[in-house]
Design a protein around this nucleic acid. Structure first.
Lengths: 201, 201, 201, 201
DNA sequence: GATGAATGAGCTTTCATTCAT
DNA sequence: TATGAATGAAAGCTCATTCAT
């Protein structure tokens, strides 16, 4: 009983720290966020945070893990349903990825922001790899079905990742730029990428 | 006479600070470089730097302006020389853009990254965006030459920007990821983009 | 019944804390041992220790009392057994004293070092000083047996205390100094002291 | 001009820090003295101290060096004048050493206090060795003159150091103990030591 | 313009101790 | 009695910036 309640409260504080950090990191940049600022926002003593996270970088790592977890869920749904044209599945996958980034800008930016700020945590790295694995599987289907100009699955998968990542980062990073209508640009980028991969008949 | 010499020396010191900072920023990252380190490298007292730059971020801004100036020159050369296949010119332009980003990660991040700790300087912003105009011109040539599947110059240009931006940001943001060989990935992305645009004959 | 068992368990936990602390203090130094480390070693929550000891220094005090108790027992055995040459008994006593100091550096320092950070506990103080009384008795035997050059028991006893104290403090205070082999230096000091006291025949 | 004045002020602040630290270290113990406390006493910002000393341990090291310097001066005078009985010179040396310790209790305690608190600084170590060298020379004279029971210079020298060190530490560490008159105890200890060394005729 | 000592706020992190459960 | 999350003060240290000279 007691334990359960404790755990719940515990979990809640951990989540509060995560929420505060997520927002602050995204707003002010990892380097400009102090443990004190996070603690103040959660109305907790600075030292308390260290009961839940080893250090500052561990907070960032936890946020990234979270992001990958969410992304993974959506990705798996895509891979599991293997009906239809694989190339079209790839397009849907790309569309979903971009939308995810735009719907969770704080998560996304933090997870994929400039590497300087991101301390290396092996758990995060492997979580990222796992997420990417789903994209790879999608690409493999296209290659196996003989629908692609090229045969190197890894090369294609990473190229597509770069492309979709670019759309997200552009929208997030240049909010003031006179972009064409958002969904039109997304579809255009996806179309160019798919057509760039497709085998000419 | 005296005045002239002084001016030259002043200018020289400013340049030396810039050179030292440029190197240190690129090597250690903006946040890990202290004013003292820069001053030591130039063999000058810390306070002296403040006679030439308002603050630390002003040094970075100056470096970025400088660097974007160089990029612009290269870009202009590309546009000015209108010989050869426009699509190939576009490919060379994209390649140059990506290489620039990877060679000047700190400066690139300043202009294009979000939520980072780097201070935003408007003058740098506009210098960076000016570069986009050259891309637009390049794309127009392709469309005018009837080499593209689509006709909307703005849509194509922004799509290509997103794509090249994506490659740069991916490399910068995930330095630990097991990417395939860098130049191979760059060429692959460019190839997919160009083929995705090219009109099927 | 229940009460008795509880008491025994209590006593056991107290002893376990003492044992863990004794080892940690000796290994890492009083200042480098945290309550948490002690608690972890005993597999107990940090707060639990405070049910058995007022604070950190109380643990050290308890250990010292304990240890001085043991020293006293040894010393008393020496004095009680009055067979053999009193001067040799004195030598054995000195040897024992030095060894005691070197085997329990933290406890020794608590009682005899100055200006150190260790908190002073009066009960420990008096326990330590009680030991001196045994030295005095030993010296008196030598004087009474007519084996000494001098007759002033107090003067001789205090001189011997200073000497043995010196060996201990030297080893404890200058751990990096290139001393000759430890036991050789101890024997040398004792030999000089005994010969310096002995009546020339 | 300017430089000279600066240097003098600089030197003065350094000395003030040293003086404050010396007193605080001796009073409260090295571990209980904070940089902030030192800074407050000197009426200076905490960071300022770091312009004069690398870190906290460097302050302690500087104090120790100082002590050894003073001791060295006196010791050298003793060794230089080689007239008279070497054993008596040794006695005078011991007397001087003890007096030095009692006259500079703070310096002495700090330099020879329990090793835990004393971070190892090579420069301090070598300064200590140099000081000890003078004692060694004195002992060698006695051995060479055939005045000693033993022949091992190092063994005798270290034994004597232990003995004199003991007297100092005892007086400093147990100010409340009912010692016999100070100079009488000192002379007694020295007498026992010298007679303990002297070759029996 | 150049100096460089000094500032002072701020950093991450540690830890003995408390107290509601 | 035992828990362990939380405290809160403090620690050593850093650094962009200022200002008297």
């Amino acid at each position: 009983m007691l334990t359960k309640r404790r755990e719940r409260l515990n979990h809640e504080l951990r989540e509060e720290v995560l929420a505060a950090a997520r927002e602050l990191f995204a707003t002010d940049g990892y380097h400009n966020v102090t443990m004190r600022k996070i603690a103040e926002r959660v109305r907790v003593a600075p030292g308390t945070i260290y009961h839940h996270f080893d250090d500052k970088s561990a907070i960032l790592a936890a946020i990234c893990m979270e992001t990958f977890g969410k992304l993974d869920k959506r990705m798996e749904a895509l891979v599991t349903d293997r009906s239809g044209n694989p190339l079209e599945r790839l397009r849907r996958g790309g569309r979903m990825y971009v939308q995810f980034g735009l719907e969770h800008p704080q998560h996304y930016a933090l997870t994929f922001a400039i590497g300087d700020a991101m301390p290396k945590h092996d758990s995060v790295m492997s979580a990222g790899l796992k997420t990417f694995e789903n994209l790879r599987l999608c690409v493999r289907d296209c290659v196996d079905a003989g629908l692609t100009r090229m045969q190197d699955v890894e090369e294609i998968a990473q190229s597509l990742w770069a492309t979709t990542h670019g759309v997200v980062m552009l929208f997030l990073g240049k909010p003031g730029f006179p972009f064409i209508e958002q969904s039109r640009l997304i579809e255009s980028v996806l179309d160019i990428a798919i057509e760039g991969i497709r085998k000419k008949t």
